[in-house]
Design a protein around this nucleic acid. Structure first.
Lengths: 347, 347
DNA sequence: GTGAAAGCGCTAACAT
DNA sequence: ATGTTAGCGCTTTCAC
């Protein structure tokens, strides 16, 4: 049962400490958790704790509390910079609240999502942050109902029960920021690379299309190409470019609606010998450390803040469902060329 | 005790399931964990489980097992790409072994390190992966001795007890690869930016210096500057460049021994108007997604594999301490200019 | 095959 | 101020 053996010194328990200090287990518990005790007994107990190298079992403690002191985070794709910053935010407030982060990466597989969320439930996490799709909604609802605060990231839930919150981005505004910036830089024929049919992706494209239309710039359906993975990007880009050219309206801007594919889109562009921004403007989601060096203009999400807020919602334990929508911000660099007219990035 | 309230449906326990199925708790446990039971009783139990939406309490289970099914990971700096890949590796094999990752970021603060490792111990993690400094060695030793496999990353431990393993990089070889590549590209006056006095940093610089010396290229002490944080990089670079110039031997290569500072060094170089590789070769540690786009040559660490191996060591539970040293690999791009002579990247 | 009872390590009433 | 007793939710003998 114990695998390849080796000398193992067994761990001390409250009982051991009590025995060595000549007191009861209740007293030990009191000195450890701050009850009313004499300095003398406290000293004896601490001495025993030190000598036995006693380390309390947090698992057992959690049984009484009904739940662990851990915040669960289920991430779809741990390689995306957005999620890394999100986790940092969660971890930051978790640490400030004596909690640890219990992490699970689902590698974008639905069956894993369901299993991981279930596992988090079994672990009796203090709260749960999920970036998964609707498949897991049934369980998160029940978790929230039975007392575990849950926060859905980048998606909203219709008719949420108590304690089921959401933290998301104003995606339509993100699209709008993109449209206005592009127009301000004199671009009029934009092609979009988007990732599947997640709510956030759809809304960004919708916001972009709407704002473009208001500026008199149509975004035909075939100017939007879907790429689920990095390997599909090159093909998506080709069809976009070829399609537009055959229609006699060659593109002068490429928008990428997900930070996850920024590298892939950029390298596909480069591979085709496209000069940015001279041949083509390039605008993408999510700021990242190298963006400045590369001069890539982005619409940034406050990922770190979103993580912080998610964790705060868990710690606060409000019954009332909170729906926190964050604002995106355009970070203008050089990948869309010079702005023609002075325009505001505000709203 | 329960914060702002709201209707909370209480959770079902084995007892509830037993009652609803008309059996004992022992039988419920048997059905759930695969004991000898009649198909008929099994059916009754499963039915009750479904109707009550019973979700077993993993915390309580862990009490019997003596430890949780969680792998602890204490990270110094969650914003470093190396650690992100490491975590992905750990998570991958954790998931394959019915474990979750319990994560803690120490924000490079020693006191937090100590506290987090202790917390991991209290959580009775199945095993622990630490990337922290020697401050935590005392506890990791004791943890290993009392049965928790521990893996130290990027550092080795002298005279380890059973179950205290290490996963690291052959740092001297990393330095050697750098030296040979630089020499192969015709560079002879290199300046180094390194981060503090961690074992790995020291070894990389030592390996670089030694290999450079073998090639007849000295690396004077003042050609090595220390930058702990990103903000210190600019200053370090300036002193390096100015010092070399005043000595009449202007630098023709900059080496950065930590991936964490790659962005900062690169941007400091750019800010000074230094052309890479024409004015200066640039060589750094750790591969990253944008390196190809930027043409930056790196010495890569197999971070993901290292994470996998660390988790494997935990799952395997060998008593004998394992010290796994990984080989670095040079990924040649354009930031050091053209290679003058055909040289091998091997050894 | 199934149940009753003991107990994992700890805390939380009750007593004293 | 301290000890005793009863659990928390689950597994695991040990009888039947």
């Amino acid at each position: 049962m114990n695998g390849p053996s080796g000398t193992m010194t067994k761990r001390a328990t409250v009982g051991d400490v009590a025995a060595h200090a000549g007191v009861s287990t209740a007293t030990v518990s009191r000195v450890l958790n701050g009850g009313a005790v004499t300095d003398a007994t406290a000293a004896k107990v601490w001495e025993a704790v030190a000598r036995l190298d006693y380390t309390p079992n947090a698992l057992t403690k959690s049984i009484f509390a009904g739940r662990s002191s851990t915040i669960g985070v289920v991430i779809r794709d741990l390689s995306s910079p957005f999620y890394l910053d999100l986790i940092r935010g969660v971890d930051e407030v978790a640490a400030a609240n004596d909690s640890l982060v219990l992490l699970a990466n689902t590698f974008r597989q639905v069956d894993r999502e369901v299993a991981q969320v279930r596992t988090m439930d079994e672990q009796r996490v203090r709260g749960l942050v999920v970036t998964t799709g609707e498949t897991t909604d049934g369980r998160t609802r029940r978790m929230a109902e039975s007392g575990t605060p849950c926060v859905v990231v980048a998606r909203t839930v219709r008719n949420p029960p108590p304690r089921l919150h959401s933290v998301s981005l104003n995606n339509r505004k993100a699209g709008r920021l993109m449209a206005r910036h592009l127009a301000g830089c004199g671009r009029s024929r934009v092609g979009v690379i988007t990732s599947g049919s997640r709510q956030s992706q759809l809304e960004r494209t919708a916001g972009l299309r709407r704002a473009l239309a208001e500026l008199g710039l149509p975004l035909p359906a075939d100017a939007v190409a879907v790429a689920e993975t990095e390997t599909e990007v090159s093909h998506a880009l080709s069809s976009l470019v070829a399609g537009a050219r055959s229609r006699g309206t060659p593109l002068d801007a490429i928008v990428c609606t997900t930070g996850r594919l920024t590298v892939a889109v950029h390298s596909a562009l480069t591979a085709r010998g496209v000069a940015i921004p001279d041949d083509m403007a390039f605008l993408t989601m999510d700021d990242f450390p190298w963006a400045a060096a590369l001069g890539i203009t982005v619409v940034a999400q406050p990922a770190y803040e979103m993580g912080r807020r998610a964790a705060e919602l868990i710690v606060e334990r409000l019954a009332e469902p909170v729906k926190h929508v964050f604002d995106p911000a355009l970070v203008a660099r050089t990948s869309c060329g010079e702005a023609r007219t002075g325009h505001s990035a505000r709203d």
